[in-house]
Nucleic acid binder design. Structure first.
Lengths: 212, 212
DNA sequence: TCATACATACAGACGTGAATGTTTGTAAAT
DNA sequence: ATTTACAAACATTCACGTCTGTATGTATGA
């Protein structure tokens, strides 16, 4: 049945994106045909080619929906721990981990990017987007780390850029490994503990650390 | 030209695997046709179907070649720091990072597994193998962490299993992010520093830590 | 206000190329 | 003489892009 009004067409578009998200995260990007997506959305390939130019354009639209709200993260962290920059970053990291597990939307996208997608030439825009997103976020965190170091909240010998890469890699790796086998460990429940493992080596203990 | 003797046939097989490693790590697993691999090896598809049943069988043979020598790692670490278990694990981690960067063979396999492969149903054996390999290695490291804790070389409140996942995720994430953009940071040069960032939070400082 | 014209939002059919698995052919080795 | 180690041809499937058809919505003008 053909959607007639603009609102109905928009709904079709949304259902196509939802279907694509589901099927991609299940069967992989290159292993999924446009026909499968159309079927999962209850339409035909004609609808896809009306709303999108091709598969890459569809993926692009898919990623447009998950523009991570960088500002939100900063504000949220700022509200909880205004003075302690490291605590802010820590909270952000925990939040990202929990989100990847608990929010089906983010989980699907993470699955696609980490496990169901080949970064090859014909989806190069996807890789570019992934990189830009990472670098944009990394630049922000790096600045905050640098500020924390300048405030004496972190040892001065630490390299902010390397430290940022370390944290990002840790978070990415945790999500990657958890998605590989979600039953191996409970990422949502252990998120804080895991982030603590990483951060407890960064802070200068204000008081001598006692044995266990 | 047809290889005639068994030795020549084995060489053809090796060249096919080498070609597959190259092309897969460049163009992705599902995006590479068997014809492309055959061409890269200087033969036709007939040769592939003679040596392997299908693409999956070829991949399987590819992974058989990189059986990580778990024992070697242990012995190597043991030789350097016989008493300090944590130092051993630290050395192993640095070695894995360096290897992923410097050894073309390991780098290609890492690229395939982390960036050029979709973990979907038809390559499920590949995912299984990846998981088993991880779990086997993780079980070993977990045991060593537990031993280190029992010796008092690490705080008792640490959970060995979670700690192992943390370290593995960190290493995986570093390789993942480095492969995403090898120019962003120099993983080989910074490997030790990066591993230090992780580990320095684990050791109980024997003496109170001084300010920077 | 109502008929006409055009645009929208798809469904369905068509042609094409590419990859796969299989089968057959063949020269050399055993 | 038969098996080995491939090359080359064949048949099939399948996904893609395009094109056409069509029912409905919307704008326009008298």
């Amino acid at each position: 049945m053909v959607r007639r009004t603009k609102e109905e067409a928009l709904e079709t578009r949304t259902q196509l994106l939802d279907a694509a998200e589901r099927v991609f995260s299940d069967k992989g990007v290159t292993n999924t045909s446009l026909n499968e997506i159309a079927e999962a959305a209850g339409v035909t390939r004609g609808a896809i080619y009306w709303h999108f130019r091709n598969k890459m354009d569809l993926i692009d639209a898919l990623m447009d929906r998950v523009r991570l709200p960088l500002e939100d993260l900063r504000e949220q962290a700022m509200a909880i721990a205004p003075d302690d920059i490291v605590a802010q970053i820590r909270i952000n990291a925990v939040h990202v981990l929990r989100q990847a597990v608990l929010d089906p939307h983010h989980r699907a996208i993470a699955t696609i990017l980490l496990h169901k997608c080949e970064y090859v030439d014909d989806v190069l825009p996807l890789k570019q987007r992934h990189l830009e997103s990472r670098n944009e976020c990394a630049a922000d965190v790096e600045q905050r780390f640098a500020y924390a170091i300048s405030l004496g909240q972190l040892p001065t010998q630490l390299n902010p850029r390397l430290l940022t890469m370390a944290l990002f890699s840790y978070v990415d790796g945790l999500i990657y490994n958890w998605l590989l086998d979600p039953d191996y460990f409970d990422l949502a429940a252990e998120a804080e503990t895991l982030i603590d493992i990483f951060f407890d080596g960064l802070r200068k203990p204000m008081t001598p650390v006692r044995g266990n």
